[in-house]
Nucleic acid binder design. Sequence first.
DNA 1: CTGAAAGCGCTTACAG
DNA 2: CTGAAAGCGCTTACAG
Lengths: 323, 323
Amino acid sequence: MANRVGVSPRTVSRVVNDEGGFSEATRTRVLEAVEDLGYQPNMLARGLITRRSGTVGLVGVDMTDPFFPAMAEGIQNEARETGRTMFFASNDGDPQRQAEVFRSLLSHAVDGVIVFPAPGTVEQLAAYARGGMPLVIVDDIVEFPNLASVSFDLEDGANQAARHLLATGRSRIGMISSEVTVPRNRRRERGFFQAFENAPTGTAPPELVRVQPTVTGGSNGLQRLLERRSDLDGIFAFNDSMAVGAMREAQSAGYRVPDDLAIVGCNDIEMSGLVSPRLTTIRLDRPRLSAEAIRVLHYLIEAPGSNPAPLVLPVQLVVREST
Amino acid sequence: MANRVGVSPRTVSRVVNDEGGFSEATRTRVLEAVEDLGYQPNMLARGLITRRSGTVGLVGVDMTDPFFPAMAEGIQNEARETGRTMFFASNDGDPQRQAEVFRSLLSHAVDGVIVFPAPGTVEQLAAYARGGMPLVIVDDIVEFPNLASVSFDLEDGANQAARHLLATGRSRIGMISSEVTVPRNRRRERGFFQAFENAPTGTAPPELVRVQPTVTGGSNGLQRLLERRSDLDGIFAFNDSMAVGAMREAQSAGYRVPDDLAIVGCNDIEMSGLVSPRLTTIRLDRPRLSAEAIRVLHYLIEAPGSNPAPLVLPVQLVVREST
DNA sequence: CTGAAAGCGCTTACAG
DNA sequence: CTGAAAGCGCTTACAG
């Protein structure tokens, strides 16, 4: 490249990075050669010396989580604008697997990582941040240098859901929660129970089961709740997949939804608007979360050691046909 | 690292890569230091010299495509086993965007790429393969050195769908196809029409519309078909999202599914088993496709210049409630 | 405005 | 069994 134009590598570098300090004639000749040869600077070489690889990592729990692709899309688009390419991996909710993933990302010298943490890995992640890696934790609230956290206010979401059930005249209400025990998941339960603190008189004490956070889990959860008390008239599910499972189970057990049993989900995945009856749920502004996550990651990359305040985004109840 | 143990970098390299040619004592001391310091070889430096970056790219059309995450998961798992990390990007079905994505992957010296090609980019992709990049094209059939292709036999799938509609007594059948005009998409139409070549007498000539391959597109497609002839009794949709859209549209227009109108989708996404009635569809063995794609990619990486035969995987009709 | 020297952290090809 | 030298393709810090 350099000798094809008859200049030093240093000059090519200057032009390609638009550093200034070259004549217009040189610029033109170099740029022509770049075009002709389809020259691309080698990011490996550049990264080796600048300590910036031009990559970011996105680590999800499970790629097949319907929650995930929308996030990936948003994050990728933003990353692309700053010229970064995205590594993509999942931790399967397993701390050890997450550690492997980070080891690999570290060896590729990623500039930063956005992570949906595996349960109980806040300490592990803090250690990476301490080691100087800019980190954004999604869906949890952590404060630490080099680390930012962005999440949805699902405590409030669960609270809205329960209040909606109460306000529409339901009085025997259960929650199908997730058995994946991580502090942030408990927030939804807390918000749910809080709604009953000043419930109308005659409201039964709320019921709770914890199951796998899947469609099948939702079915099982409803079954178990109905065994406890068959006259339930309202359900809040930890997520939409579970709500759909509960809805299927209710219908095949002969309950009409919403007449006999009202169901509220959480997350507003695409499926929720397509099942019958369409699911009432909590809507999350995922594009916003993606945008905030990558924005704050870039901030951390530019300002090492900083410690931005946790960001908690509001959520919104969407009433459809299942309540 | 090297001076901490008191050996040369060369010796560390030998131990870390298990090349042999070191004493057991050295091995132990180096490995201890590796453990203590959490040493990770710098893949940028290694890649610069070995011309292997330890990364592969996965380029999809659109991350929010329900078809996609299952593929990503499988590919990631296989890639991880061979110690490679996965770049992830989407081309939005846009050739120019795809070129940008490849430029970026190229500059990161990926060892190979699995791509769901943007329409009309076979030539573009062949050029990368010619430049020496191992490439696996998903969902299309191309033959070229350094390039492999893996796809599902959706021509046969469409044929099975149409034959199923005919076999269950439907005689006025329409197909809602995709308006995204790329040769591989036409195969489904071909398979569909072929089924009518020896249809029972009294079968009406099949109808076809082409719309956006989305839920909304499916709704519009059905509307347009029903305007043409309101007595349709069978529909084959290009994909499940469109089938669900068509089903919603049919139901709100007062058609009973499947009594008045039978609907067959294609792809068997999760949603298809959850809508009501549950959708009859064509099932694709996606884990298998992922496994084959990454397997052949690794083969191409190890055997530069080779030209494996295109792989076309069989598909299977799954009869549920919508027919 | 331009380039020669040094070095990022490894591996390749040798020599001992 | 071990290491010194050279170099991958860039950028940093200089000198001219």
